[in-house]
């Protein structure tokens, strides 16, 4: 599956718009994402390991309102990580 990044998150993934990951569910995909981009950890996850709710995950364009760990993923799936708002 593919993660896609935009906006303010780009600088935390070395300005890679997309990154490919082999995973069968969301929990595994997110774990691999954390390992690949350690700078993303304090941005996307809180200290308890939960996704911070200012960021949203879109699976193939559909908002994952409750991004459960066991959401199944296929090779062709795309997850876009969006940020609603930033202070500035």
């Amino acid at each position: 599956m593919t993660f896609r990044f935009t906006g303010l998150l780009l600088r935390f993934v070395g300005y890679q718009r997309t990154t490919e990951i082999t995973a069968t569910n969301l929990a595994d995909a997110l774990r691999q994402l954390r390992e690949r981009f350690p700078q993303l950890r304090p941005v996307l996850w809180d200290e308890s390991g939960s996704l911070i709710r200012v960021h949203r995950l879109l699976l193939n364009g559909e908002l994952l309102s409750k991004p459960d760990d066991d959401v199944p993923l296929r090779d062709t799936d795309q997850i876009e990580v969006l940020t609603a708002i930033a202070g500035g």
């Binding site: 303010l8 998150l9 935390f12 304090p42 941005v43 911070i52 709710r53 200012v54 960021h55 940020t83 609603a84 708002i85 930033a86 202070g87 500035g88």
Partner: peptide
Amino acid sequence: VVRLADKGSLAARP
């Protein structure tokens, strides 16, 4: 006014 979720990215919520 927004409250910051983390100070690195400045991602925030109202």
